[in-house]
Each structure stands twice: as C-alpha cells, then as structure tokens.
Design a protein around this nucleic acid. Structure first.
Lengths: 345, 345
DNA sequence: ATTCCTCGCACAAACGTTTGCTTGATTTTA
DNA sequence: TAAAATCAAGCAAACGTTTGTGCGAGGAAT
C-alpha cells in the first residue's frame, strides 16, 4: 500500500491551526510567530512533508519548466548543448522538458504546440533543417512565452538568439595557414544554400585580401558534405593549376573524408598538405591524422548563454521594456589540435 | 499585451451553460446532447481554447511526465539512449524531464528527490559511477513511483531493469578471432571492480574452454581505461612469451589508444595484430585503423525497452500483481567494422 | 482609561479541471 | 393517463497551495 504524500492540510489538522498559517510558517512569512513557525516546521519534518509541485505550479500559473527543442539529441553538438542547458536550468531550480524534432518541420510544429499546452515558462530552440516557415513560433508570443534560438537561428528580425559567427574563425584559420607559410589555400565549403557556407567564404576572402593576396575563386569548391562529395571536391582542388598546400574544410567530417582520400592518394600529410576544419568535435581526438586546427563553435557555451538569456527574460517579464532583443554572437575560435603535437613529436 | 489563454469557464459564460457541460462536451461525454456538444466545440475552436495542462495534471494527480536521470548527456551512449526514450515517450504523449548526475552520487540523490517532488509518474535511471548506496531509490517505492534501471544497474534484487549481457558478446568476439586463425588472444580489460569487466572475462574464458584451448591468465591484463594505462597494458601483452596476435579490449577507446601505440611501435596492423572491442561507438567510423569488430551494446534499444517497460508499469499500476520484476537482458552482439572492408580493399 | 497600533493567526477565495450527484424535462411503458 | 425510464444539463466538491483580508488580543501612546 503506497503512502499518500503529506499535505499542509494534514499538518494543519494535526496542529489544530489553519492551513494558511502552515503555508506561511513554512515560507518564513513575517506575520507568523516564532513558536508556531518552529512547531510547524518540526511537524512537517516529522510527517515527511514535501510540497506538491504540481499544485504549486498550477496555483502560481508558472511551471518552472523550460522547453528545449533540438534537431537531434544524439549529435555531439546538441548533446553538448543540452548538457549545458540542463546544468544552467538545474542551478536555477528549473526543469527541462526535452524534445527532438528529428530535423522535421512538422514534428517541430507539433512540439511547439505541445510545449505551449504544457505551459512551459520559456523555450529554447535550435530549428530543424527543413523548417522554412516560422508562424508556429509567433503563436508563443501571444501567450507571452519567450523563445531564445541558438545555433540554428531563423532569419527573423524580432527574435532573441545566440549564434556563432563563423567569419572570424574563418579569418583566423586562413591567417593561421598563411603564417605557416602557405600561399595557396583551398577551401572545401558546404552547400551554397547554407548561411554557414557564406560566412566561411566571407572570412576566407577577407583574410586573403587583408594580407594583400589575390583571391582565386577556383580555390573554393562546394560539396554536399558526404564522403563521395568530399572526394570529388578534393580531387578538383588537387587538379587546380595552383595546387593548394593547405585546405580549409567545412567541418571535421569533411576533413576526415578528405584526409582519408589524400592518404589513399599517397599524399604526405606531414609535409605536403595541411588541413584546417570547423567544429572541433570530439572525433578529432580519435583520428590518427587530424586537421592541424579546427574552428571551435562552443556548443556548451551557446547552450549556456541561450539558457541564461531565457532566464533573464523570465525574470524581467513583468516589466514592459520588451522592445530590445538579445542578439548574441559568439565568436568562433581557432583551436590547434592537441593531436598535432603528437604528429610533430 | 499578452492574451490570457482561454478557459472552459469563459466558454461556459459565453454560451450561457455550465462549466461541467463544457468539460463533458469537449470529452464527448454521452450525457451531453449533440447540439450542445457541437456548439461548445465550435466555440472552443473559435476562442482558440487549449486545455491548461498544469490544471489537468494537478486535478488528476498525474503529471504525464517521466523523469530520466543519466550520468552524462554528452556521452555517445547516453545521448543515443535519451534519444530513444524521448521517442517512446513522445509516442505515448508523455513528457520527459531530463537530468544528469555527472556521475556523482550526491547529485543523483538530489535529482531523485527533485523528481519525486515534481511527482513524475515514473523514473528511468542509469546510475552514476560513484553510486554505492541506493536508499534514495527505495523512497520512490513508498510513493508508488516505478523505476526502471538500464545499462548501469544497481546490484539489487527487487528492481526492474534492462541491461546488456556482455558475456555472449565476449564469447562471440573470441570465437570470431579463433575462426580467423588466431590462437593466442590477449585481453585488455577494465578495472576488476566493474561488473562489466567480470562479464567480459567470463565470456573470454568460456569461449576458450569450449574450443578446448587452455586459458592463460597472463593474457588478460587490467587497465584503468586511460590512454597511458592502455599503453602499459599493451606493452605487457606484447612482452608475453606467448605474444598475442589478437587483442580484445574493454571498449573502443581502449582499442583506439592501443592501436595508436601499436602503430607507433611499428606493428603492422594488417597482418600482425587484430583488435576487437566493445561498444561500437560512432568513433569507429572516424578511426583510420579500427578494431576489426566491436561488440554492440545497443544503447537505443536499451533506452527503448526501458521506456516501454516503464509505461507497462504505469498502465498496470492499479493492479496488485506487483510481485514480478522485469529483468530484461539484451544480448550484446559482435559487429564487424564496416571500415574493415576498406582496409582489405 | 480610552484610542490606536501591532502582532499572530484564521477565513476564504482563487487557480482550471474533472466528476459524482441532483434536477428538470421529455419520452416510453403499462 | 399516471408511473417509470431516459436524456440533458447544472451544482458543487475536490485536488494542494498561495495570498488578500478580517479579527481578536495585547501593548503602547495619549
């Protein structure tokens, strides 16, 4: 037989005082005398009282829960982000209601609806790849549920977001390679449709021009991020009449594929070709030949900042000054591979 | 100005009928006439009514939420498991309250407490490495909150769990190597304190004996799962007078470290030394030299099964037959590395 | 000694829903 | 045609907590 949780009602009855007194005593309300307060607390302890959260939440009209919608939990980037979010929420004594969209717009819509019905206090979202319309987020505004987007941010004006600026990282990457003596630097970029591809290219071009080097468009080739696509891209670069001695790739996976292919072609990675990539995922630690550096996008920090902002919004929600929007841009940062030292040594 | 969510009360007032009628109409209760029912539904639609979940949950004393406590969300294994759990819960229209213990017993205790206060309907747990006492879980029984453990399961009798049997996988692994012609097979195992180490060893021994080969204890060395520990272990095995031509390692990481070290020693992995490991993590796809096979532990399946069981318990909770405990053992399974084909070709 | 505060506590409403019971009206049965 | 059965809808309690308001008693101020 399970024991029903104790309620303040029962405490009140046992002590022959009113319910409100018990509630106030437990909250150290000034209008309750010391003696009663202690009596109540002792009794609560004794009866193993635990406040019924659902009742409190209901009463207050708040859930102390934030919703998080991510594309894919099993991806390194997002699992790292959710880890951060969970940590922040926990510190604030908030709960995390988790859901994954599996990169599907319809699923995402459903989830937003569900979150709304669950009356989450706020929402953290990294939008699905397929998401092209954004009305489902507008709805939340009407219910005064703040949303903070991160990493994958919709192209809207009036939103809060945290994102990572790839351009600076891209500049750093090119500068790094130039400093190492490279003069012909190739780039295996992502599909032109992605904003992230544009930022990478911009950084590349800016860095080249700033160093008074001419920008050769044929040294930038796009790819679909698959292994075969990467191989084609690498072949194309290697056939270039100004054959690059270093290549910047869209992400670590592309680097991996390219490195694999290069080795198969018998290219000496120690002397003939350097790679730099983006993401700096844990997989770097497991590759025998790694890019010599990778542009870190700080998933943990992004998650953390996004959560912080959300709590800011929640705490200041009563005030009217809702005109301003948080638009946080985290600068990406080039990180040298620790593995590189091993290669040198 | 935010618009307050519509309540059934408002619908009732607008239609000049009672609250209960509205509630019943929306639930298709038989005692409500067709005309009123339609009127109500139309009005609800029109006023954009959405049931207030927190109110319902409070009223029903259920939260339609399951808690999940995992050691570390950013680890591949667990992010895969949580992904499965989330999927199952979603299908059942349940919510997932997520928390990570960071492998700390105290944190875990706090979280259990928190989950209990939040009145989750059930709990899914993979216990922290440091957890040595388990009273915090007992408490849940008193509140009739069912718990299902998975993967990292406490050594208790009266619990529900899903775990992976490493022994069969271990046997498979050794058989696989024997079939490949290996006669001296080494093992780099984990710390003896872990149950998982014991299972691996058991499987190894059983497979050897079944094949009428003598078991040489000196071919099994323990390690602390770090890179340096792995290197020491490998060195020890290589110095063995019956130098192994194949090695089974505790997990993919250990294999990775060992392979790295072996290559540094100039060992030809194509001909002189084969590795087989456990876990079959995605990192295998990113290693240039991989173990030729890995014992899969099916994190997604484990998460899925555990969640299924929990829902079973939730649905049958009213009945008294709580004497039986689910003890599901998933057989691990040897999986040949796809990368292997690349090596051959 | 009368008025006025302050202190300590109780009363009761409210949050949004569900649901057992009651009531009134209509239809069926005898 | 009266009694019984059926249908449709309303009333009110309940879930556990918070909180605005009321109220009596004791002490201080006048």
């Amino acid at each position: 037989m399970q024991q029903k949780p104790t309620t303040i009602k029962e405490i009140a009855k046992k002590l022959n005082i009113s319910i409100s007194t018990v509630s106030r005593a437990l909250h150290d309300h000034p209008s309750i005398g010391l003696i009663t307060r202690q009596k109540v607390k002792r009794m609560a302890e004794e009866m193993n009282y635990e406040p019924n959260q659902t009742a409190i939440l209901f009463q207050k009209g708040k859930t102390y829960t934030i919703g998080v919608i991510l594309p894919e939990l099993s991806e390194d980037f997002f699992s790292s982000a959710i880890s951060a979010i969970e940590d922040v929420a926990n510190k604030r004594n908030y709960n995390v209601l988790l859901a994954q969209s599996h990169d599907d717009q319809d699923k995402e819509k459903q989830l937003v609806e569900k979150m709304k019905n669950h009356r989450v206090d706020g929402l953290l979202v990294s939008v699905a790849k397929t998401t092209s319309t954004f009305e489902h987020f507008d709805m939340l505004k009407r219910y005064n549920i703040p949303v903070v987007f991160f990493d994958r941010v919709p192209p809207l004006k009036d939103i809060h977001y945290v994102a990572c600026n790839m351009e600076t990282g891209s500049i750093e990457a090119v500068n790094y390679l130039l400093k190492k003596g490279h003069r012909s630097i190739g780039m295996i970029n992502g599909p032109a449709t992605l904003a992230a591809s544009g930022q990478r290219k911009e950084g590349y071009v800016k860095a080249m021009l700033k160093n008074r080097l001419k920008f050769d468009p044929s040294l930038i080739v796009g790819c679909d991020l698959t292994e075969s696509g990467t191989i084609r891209a690498l072949d194309e670069l290697l056939d270039n009449r100004r054959r690059p001695t270093a290549i910047v790739t869209f992400n670590d996976y592309v680097s991996l594929y390219a490195i694999r292919h290069a080795r198969k072609l018998g290219i000496d990675l120690a002397s003939d070709l350097d790679f730099v990539s983006y993401a700096n995922l844990p997989i770097i630690n497991f590759m025998d030949h790694t890019p010599i550096a990778s542009v870190e996008q700080f998933p943990y920090v992004q998650g953390q900042r996004a959560a912080d902002i959300l709590f800011d919004l929640l705490n200041s929600k009563s005030e009217e000054g809702q005109a301003a929007f948080y638009k946080i841009v985290i600068e990406s940062q080039l990180v040298e591979s620790p593995a590189k030292k091993r290669q040198d040594g």
